[in-house]
């Protein structure tokens, strides 16, 4: 076993948590505001993009994934990967089922 495994897991100071909180609130406000503007096809892209940024901030800092072991990072990546299989395989079927008929 390496010596790092004997360390208590490090955490960020409260200052980091407050900064993340402010970032999350600001991004949510921007997201809500953007919904009132007519940006055409960009509306959903911006909304989901900002949601992704918020989710990544929560995962990295509030869930401490940034400071977690590789096993946790891999487990989380496996979850996203499996979810992407669900989405991509379903959509592949969806757009190709009636291929040429539309």
């Amino acid at each position: 076993m390496s010596s790092t495994e004997h360390q208590q897991h490090p955490t960020s100071p409260p200052r980091t948590y407050i900064l993340i909180l402010l970032a999350l609130l600001v991004f949510t406000a921007i997201n809500t505001g953007a919904a009132y503007l007519n940006l055409g096809f960009l509306n959903p892209i911006i909304a989901l993009g900002i949601a992704c940024v918020n989710a990544v901030l929560v995962i990295l800092f509030y869930m401490h994934l940034r400071y977690s072991s590789r096993l946790m990072k891999l487990t989380f990546a496996a979850g996203i990967f499996t979810f992407m299989i669900l989405v991509i395989m379903t959509l592949t079927d969806y757009i190709s089922r009636g291929w040429g008929l539309w």
Binding site: A35, L37, N43, P44, L48, I59, M63
Partner: peptide, 21 residues
């Protein structure tokens, strides 16, 4: 608890925000 928040982070734009225009 954070996971439950992340689910809402995506529910909010999908259900409320992206269909306004």
């Amino acid at each position: 608890w954070h996971f439950v928040d992340i689910v809402w982070t995506f529910l909010f734009p999908l259900l409320y925000l992206i269909n306004r225009h």
